[in-house]
């Protein structure tokens, strides 16, 4: 028994002399540290790639959404209701903005968002409210504005095609700066141009005076003032000579305004009239 115990003690003593050398431990630790860091480093490129892909995706999505949702051109429609349709680069209506209470009512009746603008215009013209206005002898001005002239002209051509069946609709093209000015006065582009024309004849007129007037009423006012002016002052403005007297149904061939220095083309609808 003693022999056995003695053997066990000697065995333990023999093996307890064996230790892992400091060098061996240090070497193992440095190897492990290297492996751990390598794994960490390896995981980074994957994360980075994933993050980059996510950023790219977000940027493309945001860019796409911006491209789709931001209007590139505007179609301003004025009868009495004043509406402005924002058209994106893909010819879709992305915004419908109203500039007076009648416009607000009409906008609420229309479900034309994301429609092709030609279809949207057809839809608008077929609305009973609009039809009633037109049948009642109102004049409707459709003004197209955009930063890209070519695109604006293309839209204008389409709009003219759409409105070809109506004799009291006139189509014009404007520019985006003029439209911003109109907005700053709280008017749609079509009405703003009529307002400018009226202002050259009657400088006391304010945007508030005409905001809720129909285009027919503004047109009549202009015609009245013109017929008075031509009688007493031949060279009131450059416009007056162009804007010869006429009734609402047979207006001037060139619709010059006080902003005549600004670039704005004139494309007229069926009877070249407001």
């Amino acid at each position: 028994m003693n022999k056995e115990k003695n053997f066990e003690k000697n065995f333990r003593d023999a093996f307890s002399q064996i230790h892992a050398e400091d060098g061996l431990k240090a070497q193992t630790k440095s190897y492990l540290a290297q492996q751990i860091n390598k794994k960490k480093r390896h995981s980074f490129p994957v994360l980075q790639a994933a993050a980059a892909a996510a950023c790219l995706f977000a940027a493309v999505s945001a860019g796409g959404a911006w491209l789709y949702l931001s209007p590139a051109s505007y179609i301003s429609i004025d009868i009495n209701p004043s509406l402005e349709l924002g058209i994106n680069r893909f010819d879709r209506v992305v915004s419908v903005e109203s500039f007076n209470s009648n416009g607000q009512d009409l906008a609420e009746q229309l479900d034309i968002r994301y429609m092709d603008y030609s279809d949207a215009l057809e839809e608008l013209l077929s609305k009973q409210t609009v039809e009633a206005y037109l049948a009642d002898g109102a004049v409707m001005a459709v003004t197209v504005a955009g930063s890209d002239e070519e695109k604006t002209n293309q839209i204008l051509e389409n709009v003219e095609t759409c409105t070809a069946g109506h004799s009291n609709i006139s189509c014009h093209s404007g520019d985006i700066e003029e439209m911003h000015e109109a907005h700053s006065e709280g008017l749609s582009l079509g009405k703003y141009r009529a307002y400018l024309e009226l202002k050259t004849l009657d400088p006391t007129v304010t945007p508030d005076d005409i905001r809720d007037l129909s285009m027919r009423e503004i047109r009549d006012l202009i015609d009245d003032l013109k017929s008075t002016d031509t009688g007493k002052d031949e060279d009131n403005t450059g416009n007056s000579s162009e804007n010869g007297a006429g009734n609402a149904g047979s207006g001037p061939k060139e619709n010059g305004t006080s902003a005549g220095s600004k670039r704005h083309g004139h494309r007229h609808g069926a009877d070249n009239n407001w």
């Binding site: 093996f15 064996i18 230790h19 892992a20 050398e21 061996l24 431990k25 193992t28 630790k29 492990l32 540290a33 751990i36 794994k39």
Partner: peptide
């Protein structure tokens, strides 16, 4: 994956045992 601290602790704690098994 364990941290570097855990790895160092294991080497210190079990290094002698591993060394003895290696030796035999």
């Amino acid at each position: 994956m364990r941290s570097e601290e855990e790895a160092n602790r294991a080497v210190d704690l079990y290094g002698d045992t591993v060394r003895r098994i290696c030796m035999i």
